[in-house]
């Protein structure tokens, strides 16, 4: 929802998901690159890479799609 030319809530969600996604994705890449994986079950699935990557893509989509000044 965008009201009176103001930013939509989806834009804020996009920003937050982008920041979180980037942080988690980068940590996942670090794990992949160094082999130092966290001591959690199913660490071999590298959840931070795909979960963080998914959040990053979704965040970028919302951030761009609902950026201020664009009717959403």
């Amino acid at each position: 929802m965008s009201t009176s030319g103001h930013s939509s809530i989806w834009f804020f969600i996009g920003i937050l998901l982008t920041v979180y996604g980037a942080m988690i994705f980068c940590y996942g890449l670090y794990e992949l690159a160094t082999g130092h994986v966290a001591n959690v079950v199913l660490a071999n699935l590298h959840a931070p890479v795909w979960w963080g990557g998914g959040m990053l893509i979704l965040g970028l989509f919302y951030g761009i799609r609902f950026r201020p000044g664009r009717n959403g």
Binding site: Y20, M23, I24, Y27, E31, A38, V40, V41, A47, P48
Partner: peptide, 12 residues
């Protein structure tokens, strides 16, 4: 959460 979530994800 502690079982599956690595740093960053646990914070989430």
């Amino acid at each position: 959460m502690v079982r599956y979530m690595s740093p960053g994800l646990l914070g989430l």
